[in-house]
Amino acid sequence: MSDAPSEFQLTVPDSVAADPGAIELIRIWWSKDEPVMSVMPAFDDPARFGELLAIAARHMAYGYAVRHGHDEKTAYHRILHGLSDVIKADNVATVAEPATLKGGNA
């Protein structure tokens, strides 16, 4: 993934790099027209992950406002609409890739 254009590369925030107790919970890619992810269910209570997703939606709405000129509140509601559509459809299947030692480390 290091060959990806710089506009698609993410960096670790300084505050996270400086925190020895920080843990990575999820990585998500858009690949071959679908999401692919690596997850770490680190919270004892799954509701905490729901809280994280809600906060992430707010941050993403801000990103759409800054990067694409969207109205932040409208972008947030569009994100929630997308979440709701997937929840209502109830047709997402988890497909686990085999664990390998070669290739990626995610």
Results as ranks from 00 to 15, higher is better:
Met1Ile: 11
Met1Thr: 13
Ser2His: 11
Asp3Phe: 07
Asp3Glu: 13
Ala4Ile: 02
Ala4Val: 06
Ala4Gln: 09
Ala4Asn: 06
Ala4Asp: 10
Pro5Met: 01
Pro5Glu: 03
Ser6Pro: 01
Ser6Gly: 02
Ser6Phe: 02
Glu7Lys: 07
Glu7Val: 08
Phe8Asp: 12
Phe8Cys: 11
Gln9Cys: 04
Gln9Asp: 01
Leu10Phe: 09
Leu10Trp: 05
Leu10Ala: 10
Thr11Ile: 09
Thr11Pro: 01
Thr11Tyr: 06
Val12Gly: 02
Val12Tyr: 06
Pro13His: 02
Pro13Cys: 03
Pro13Thr: 02
Asp14Tyr: 04
Asp14Gln: 12
Ser15Pro: 02
Ser15Gln: 12
Ser15Ile: 10
Val16Asp: 09
Val16Thr: 13
Ala17Phe: 03
Ala17Val: 04
Ala18Gly: 08
Ala18His: 09
Ala18Glu: 15
Asp19Asn: 15
Asp19Gly: 04
Asp19His: 07
Pro20Gln: 04
Pro20Leu: 04
Pro20Thr: 05
Gly21Asp: 15
Ala22Val: 03
Ala22Tyr: 07
Ala22Lys: 05
Ala22Gly: 05
Ile23Asp: 15
Glu24Thr: 14
Leu25Glu: 03
Ile26Ala: 13
Ile26Asp: 03
Ile26His: 09
Arg27Glu: 04
Arg27Thr: 02
Arg27Cys: 04
Arg27Val: 04
Ile28Tyr: 05
Ile28Arg: 08
Ile28Thr: 09
Ile28Met: 13
Ile28Pro: 01
Trp29Cys: 04
Trp29Arg: 11
Trp29Ala: 06
Trp30Pro: 02
Trp30Cys: 09
Lys32Ile: 11
Lys32Asp: 13
Lys32Gly: 11
Glu34Val: 12
Glu34Ala: 15
Pro35Gln: 10
Pro35Ser: 09
Pro35Asn: 08
Pro35Glu: 07
Pro35Tyr: 10
Val36Gly: 02
Val36Cys: 10
Val36Ala: 08
Met37Asp: 06
Met37Arg: 08
Met37Gln: 08
Ser38Glu: 11
Val39Thr: 12
Val39Lys: 11
Met40Ile: 13
Met40Ser: 14
Pro41Lys: 07
Pro41His: 09
Pro41Ile: 02
Pro41Leu: 11
Pro41Phe: 07
Ala42Gln: 06
Ala42Thr: 07
Phe43Cys: 00
Asp44Met: 03
Asp44Gln: 08
Asp44Ala: 10
Asp44Leu: 05
Asp44Ser: 08
Asp45Ala: 00
Pro46Cys: 00
Ala47Val: 00
Arg48Val: 01
Arg48Phe: 01
Phe49Val: 00
Phe49Lys: 00
Gly50Leu: 01
Gly50Ala: 06
Gly50His: 00
Glu51Gln: 10
Glu51Trp: 03
Glu51Arg: 03
Glu51Pro: 01
Leu52Ala: 12
Leu52Arg: 10
Leu53Cys: 15
Leu53Asp: 08
Ala54Lys: 10
Ala54Pro: 01
